[in-house]
């Protein structure tokens, strides 16, 4: 109930923001932070709950983005349907990656996801319809939706809705049987199987949902930049961030990736503006090291230890 209320307040704020926030940069930066909330939350469903570390966030993100671009170019598909199509395509990729977990665990699974990213990037580089390696400029729709006068503000609202849905999904998974089953897989997959936990079905579900959410986050990407090209859509930065944010926030709870994304996403925006965009990556790296060494259970772990005064066992 509290969650629903919070979600409504957030979406309401995003919808009403154009009335009182006129600074264009706010929407640009906010969009990126929200996008990272979706990516981090999605990553955590497979990586945090089930313990399968996915290094291919960039692939899912780009599959979402390019599905949207291809359909937009072909039939001028409206944004809502672009997002659904991007989520469906990335969800299908997630299903295939889920099948990999049949044979690959641990580090081998992670390496396979990097390989998938590289293969797909090469494919898109040679796909001329969507611009190939040199990219494709996107003309945003000229008609503004609803009461909006600025397309970036509209994208900000759309991304807020996606983020709220993604977090709601992660929360639903975490508290129910699916989450319990995924945690069992993380702790001891063999034992989970022996206990009658349908491990393959759960892994496929987690990988598909995780992939679909990443695809949904990627779908508005080209509209946001008015341009798309493979090396930025498939960027390793997405993989690193989607992994660093839940680890910094805490992987045990749905709020962890949200906290991590807000913290790291905001710091990166500030650093980009004040120092340089190259420093971004360094910030992620340094913070990741600091947290892994100093607070292995992330912000949530610190909260538990110092605010709730519960020892971490």
């Amino acid at each position: 109930m509290k969650f629903l209320l919070g979600a409504l307040v957030l979406v309401g704020f995003a919808a009403a923001a154009p009335l009182f926030v006129h600074l264009e940069y706010f929407y640009f930066a906010g969009f990126v932070v929200l996008q990272f909330i979706v990516l981090a939350t999605a990553w955590n469903i497979l990586g945090g709950f089930a313990g399968y570390v996915n290094f291919g966030t960039g692939a899912f993100f780009a599959v979402g983005a390019y599905s949207a671009v291809a359909l937009y170019k072909a039939v001028q598909l409206p944004l809502g349907l672009q997002i659904l199509a991007g989520a469906a395509a990335a969800g299908l990729l997630g299903f295939l990656v889920g099948l990999l977990t049949l044979r690959l665990r641990g580090i081998f699974f992670s390496i396979a996801t990097i390989a998938i990213t590289i293969i797909l990037e090469t494919v898109v580089m040679n796909w001329h319809y969507v611009g190939g390696a040199k990219g494709l400029p996107i003309l945003r729709p000229t008609e503004m939706p609803l009461y909006f006068t600025n397309y970036t503000q509209w994208l900000f609202l759309v991304m807020t809705i996606i983020a709220v849905l993604a977090v709601a999904m992660a929360r639903y998974i975490q508290v129910g049987w699916i989450g319990r089953g995924l945690r069992a897989i993380r702790d001891n997959e063999g034992a989970a199987e022996c206990s009658g936990v349908p491990t393959l079905k759960l892994k496929l579900a987690a990988a598909s949902i995780s992939g679909a959410l990443m695809g949904a986050a990627g779908a508005p990407f080209a509209q946001y930049l008015s341009f798309i090209e493979p090396s930025s859509a498939f960027s390793l930065n997405y993989a690193v961030n989607a992994l660093a944010m839940p680890i910094i926030g805490g992987t045990a709870h749905w709020i962890g990736p949200v906290l991590g994304a807000i913290l790291l996403g905001t710091v990166q925006q500030v650093v980009t503006v004040t120092i340089s965009s190259e420093m971004n990556v360094l910030v992620v790296g340094v913070m990741l090291v600091v947290f892994v060494v100093g607070a292995p259970e992330g912000i949530l772990g610190l909260w538990k230890r110092y605010v709730l005064k519960k020892g971490t066992p």
């Binding site: 089953g181 945690r183 702790d187 034992a191 989970a192």
Partner: peptide
């Protein structure tokens, strides 16, 4: 072969 990082009750529920 328990689930060491889950609680006793969660272990039981998983059964």
């Amino acid at each position: 072969r328990l689930f060491p990082r889950l609680t006793v009750e969660e272990n039981l529920l998983l059964g």
